[in-house]
Design a protein around this nucleic acid. Structure first.
Lengths: 248, 248
DNA sequence: AAACTTAGTGTAAAAATTACACTTTGAAAA
DNA sequence: TTTTCAAAGTGTAATTTTTACACTAAGTTT
């Protein structure tokens, strides 16, 4: 168990965030263009998840929150840890090695990253004129290609955890405005879960949970019958439906 | 996102394992007495989860496997990551600080740990005459008291993940001998899930899954009708019951 | 006024879940 | 050898949950 005389060099530890948003039709992921730390001129066209090294005295969740704050200006973002990624072979793609070289990092250097996923209401997100706004891009989940480092692995775990959690906890609201139509909610579930949800059954089931409250507001500016807007009551979830919540 | 000129000192990274076993009645956890790295004489009576710092070039899972191998002599143990624990305040209990002092570690030093949980067949476990066998103890889950460091937090996450996974994947078999009675399996589920499972319904449901195969063996040495033994067929789970598996 | 588009609604059949008690079998005791 | 003991093994009916499915209502545009 103890490993007596081997020399252990401490790895760098970073956080990387999979930020999900929903535009009404597609599940989107926030990506950034890779840049060089202390060498900001260097840049390849590789997309990566937003992330950063953790600071001393910083909680892991705090580090993830900080990354999100820098990126969006938002605090109190829904955030969930999905695990640690630490294979020494994380950085093996030629482009990754070129990047390491450009930023003068030792390719042998070990980086462990803690993955998070976050849900944000895409409308609340404002490009930050400071920071890295100009390099930030929303990309449809289906169209995310190859990312740098091992970020596709992190994304895989993130979508898996998202589906898992969406199935069992009322977290979908994090992706929507505070007042939303049942159609918006339906589209969100149907999209994330991969389709096949019955519209009528979904509606009944959602309303039966008791944690949606109807408002007196209606959709505006649509060329057809406007839908009633609802709002989510977290307390009702906590109390009433003691974990019987389930969706498809 | 980038944090320009702050000095970042790399934390130590360790793995800690919650090793579960089942003795037929209780869910057990494997604990070790804390000792001092490079100072093996120092020891307090505090129990902790088995763990170690990761080596260079070692995958996180490899590190966890190594810890388990050192402890049990077993390879190919069921192992599941449960996440990273990295609050800078992890080491705040007086005893923990005394320990850090005794082993000459800087109390400011940052340690991030990756938690795992493992399932082993308690009968296969042999105390290793080398290593730390004399300090190893199986403790009933209900009777684990206060552990050192933040290991109670890790244990909480582990039991939560175990229940979650047991509910959805056929992992209970990892805790049993390869041939087992339905009663053993029932006790295991009932114990881990916190009781209340109907014996007859459980039996029917389990057999209906199709991934239990009956053998021609029977329980021996019991003072009553001996139960038939079954065995688990992983392939049947993979193919047939495409994720429809669910228990209580 | 007609056409278009999405909102909004109910029911019946099938499947899954739950609750529940007696008979069988082998070993041990009388 | 008979009785007793302890756990093994078995089935059904009621309830609940899930699924499949199509038409009317309402507001906007043409």
């Amino acid at each position: 168990m103890v490993q007596k005389n081997s020399i252990i060099s401490n790895p760098n530890v970073s956080v990387d965030c999979v930020v999900f948003g929903f535009d009404g039709a597609d599940l989107k992921v926030l990506l950034v263009e890779r840049y060089g730390r202390d060498n900001l001129d260097f840049q390849d066209d590789t997309l990566v998840l937003p992330g950063d090294l953790i600071n001393n005295h910083e909680d892991l969740n705090e580090a993830a929150s900080r990354v999100l704050y820098d990126l969006t200006g938002l605090t109190k973002i829904f955030l969930q840890q999905i695990g640690a990624f630490g294979s020494p072979k994380r950085l093996s793609k030629p482009k990754d090695i070129a990047w390491l070289d450009a930023v003068r990092m030792n390719p042998e250097a070990r980086v462990i990253t803690i993955g998070y996923y976050a849900l944000i209401n895409i409308k609340n997100y404002k490009v930050r004129p400071s920071s890295f706004a100009k390099h930030v891009v929303w990309r449809a989940y289906d169209e995310v290609g190859e990312l740098g480092f091992d970020h596709n692995d992190i994304l895989d775990r993130a979508i898996h955890n998202l589906r898992d959690q969406l199935y069992r906890e009322p977290i979908g609201f994090e992706l929507l405005p505070s007042h939303f139509s049942l159609h918006q909610l339906y589209s969100l579930y149907n999209e994330i879960m991969g389709g096949g949800i019955d519209r009528r059954n979904f509606r009944r089931r959602m309303l039966k949970t008791g944690f949606l409250k109807e408002t007196e507001e209606y959709q505006e500016g649509v060329p057809h019958k406007p839908a009633r807007l609802y709002t989510f009551i977290p307390e009702e979830f906590e109390n009433a439906s003691k974990n019987n919540f389930k969706f498809y």
